[in-house]
């Protein structure tokens, strides 16, 4: 009797075991990106740019050519790659500390120039790798290593909504915020990532998918509680949906 293969790991990821904490959704998001690259049959034509933070080693997990950027600079590095090789697919994979804090200038200008790259922006409202410090996306009242009394609007200011901000720029072609807190949302996230790479394929401009993600280790919650926390606390501050769709349709 021959066995039928009903599921296998995407070719978009290598066999290297990831270093991510239990319950962290980086693994899920990696898989979604890997699956999209495989399904679009563009793995061999893609150059990824890894950033600094928890996902710094993503270059060991994505099964395509990768270059690793300095903290926050991935959109500038991706610009250099794409401008030399406009025939290739180029994506960055960045966390919220990297993209929204130290790299806010690079992301704004890459978006404003309409760089034909795809940005996977993983927002978990905290710095993970360095041990749970406040990020620009940390919620008001959220306790972190550097906001031990909770983020105070009068002291640390308010969270930055990157998708809303970038969607005001003419260079952006597709921007959507999705979440990973349950299966329907994960499936939606995959659809958004696919749409972003399709946008790049059509040369329409800058595309970004902001993915709400978890950090059980630094939030001090178990994996299940973390998913609940995203749904209850993050989604109201970071509403899900399409913020820019130059092309229209789905």
């Amino acid at each position: 009797m021959t066995m039928k293969t009903v599921f296998q790991k995407t070719k978009g990821l290598t066999d290297k075991p990831t270093h991510y904490c239990p319950g962290c959704t980086h693994g899920v998001i990696h898989r979604l990106v890997g699956e999209v690259l495989e399904e679009m049959d563009i793995l061999e034509d893609t150059i990824g740019v890894a950033s600094v933070g928890c996902s710094v080693l993503s270059y060991e997990y994505f099964n395509c050519d990768m270059t690793q950027a300095a903290h926050g600079r991935a959109p500038a590095v991706a610009t250099g790659v794409k401008r030399v090789r406009p025939d290739r697919f180029v994506f960055t994979y960045q966390g919220d500390g990297d993209l929204a804090s130290i790299g806010i200038s690079e992301i704004i200008h890459a978006a404003a120039r309409g760089e034909k790259i795809t940005v996977i922006f993983v927002n978990n409202a905290i710095y993970g790798m360095t041990g749970g410090q406040m990020a620009p996306t940390t919620l008001i009242g959220q306790k972190t290593a550097t906001t031990p009394f909770g983020r105070n609007e009068n002291i640390q200011g308010s969270p930055i909504r990157v998708s809303e901000m970038l969607s005001t720029l003419d260079g952006t072609a597709y921007i959507e915020r999705v979440s990973t807190h349950d299966v329907p949302n994960i499936l939606k996230a995959k659809k958004a990532i696919r749409k972003a790479f399709e946008t790049q394929k059509k040369g329409l401009g800058f595309s970004m998918v902001e993915v709400l993600s978890t950090c059980p280790t630094n939030w001090g919650l178990d994996p299940q509680e973390s998913l609940e926390w995203v749904r209850e606390n993050m989604v109201p501050v970071y509403p899900l949906g399409v913020y820019k769709n130059k092309e229209g349709g789905n």
Binding site: T67, A69, R73, A76, V77, G80, R83, R85, S105, E106
Partner: peptide, 24 residues
């Protein structure tokens, strides 16, 4: 070829890093 005015010297050198990554 291609000239691109970067938003800062920091971005410029990192664009160089990206372009050089492709062998240019």
């Amino acid at each position: 070829g291609l000239f691109l005015q970067a938003e800062s010297e920091i971005a410029a050198i990192n664009m160089v890093y990206g372009a050089s990554s492709t062998g240019a």
